[in-house]
Nucleic acid binder design. Structure first.
Lengths: 160, 160
DNA sequence: GGTTATATTGGAAAAATATGCATTTCATGG
DNA sequence: CCATGAAATGCATATTTTTCCAATATAACC
């Protein structure tokens, strides 16, 4: 189906853009984008996207996207590729290296999203990432140089 | 308060031991442990612990503990009390090494729990861990080989 | 101790979320 | 084009979770 696919994309976009605290809220945002659907359908969509309701910093509830897993398991549906790589430099500030680790600093709260995109790229140069609030740690594959990492990252962070 | 503290501990233990899909379920488990409380109180407890309801691998809902090493903010009671080591393979998928870092990939949402257990073991081979959603990073002690790490981990991940 | 602020809790109700069932839509292979 | 099975969806409802309010219990302070 065409509608559902783009709706799921819209949901991902909205979740990574603003703070949504309930399905009703999300329903309103989706309505602004021209999607008409009921809460029942949204519940199913969120379930499929594995979106979770967490507790934000001020104790508020908030829906958040999961980090996509690099490995697909049996029974696991839901391919989670973002439509396109972000061309904007979404919060990127700096990158530093230390041995086989790279530390990327971002503006507050941007680390998760950036890590999300890096994960999705499945770079062979990077074997894993961990994100905090404004820091992303990358573990570099053995035998891979820093420039190789930079070159890879440049595809999603042009001005790195 | 004494009761609440130990109750929160019990909740953590239960969550890392078995799969809980609803607050009612948790209430039953807590009752077995001798805790009497209403679902309203449990909802508040879970909120305070920042426990989240995620979607498990078979599409089932499941409550999971927050990541141990991240999201530790001011007010939160940070002590993750030592729990009995549980023999479980919970979500383990793979492990890769790069220098003094090991990256364990798990099924979605299992990383926090796994890191929790590894931390509790206090392996001399592992000086620290960081957990994301489906990734655990281990910082290996200087002069320790990869096989030594595997050997240590085998006590909690038999089929590693 | 006595008094006042803070935290904890239960009960009930509100709010939010999930799901069974029927219907429509979509995709596929004659 | 039509039949057929699968997917998507809405509606109504069941289930689950959160929150309001009042009652205690706990802690802090003088």
């Amino acid at each position: 189906m065409k509608v559902k696919k783009s709706r799921l994309d819209a949901i991902r976009l909205i979740l990574s853009t603003q703070e949504i605290g309930s399905q009703e809220e999300m329903l309103n945002e989706l309505a602004k984008e021209g999607f008409t659907l009921t809460q029942a359908t949204l519940s199913r969509d969120l379930h499929q996207l594995r979106v979770v309701k967490t507790v934000g910093v001020q104790g508020k509830y908030r829906y958040v996207l999961p980090r996509p897993s690099q490995y697909r398991h049996e029974g696991e549906q839901g391919e989670m590729r973002p439509a396109a790589v972000i061309q904007e430099t979404a919060g990127y500030l700096s990158i530093k290296f230390s041995g086989n680790i790279a530390v990327i600093h971002t503006k507050p709260s941007y680390a998760g999203t950036l890590a999300y995109h890096i994960d999705n790229c499945d770079f062979p140069e990077i074997i894993g990432t961990i994100a905090g609030d404004d820091t992303v740690m990358l573990i570099i594959a053995e035998g891979t140089g820093h420039t190789a990492v930079l070159r890879a990252l440049r595809s999603i962070i042009p001005n790195i």
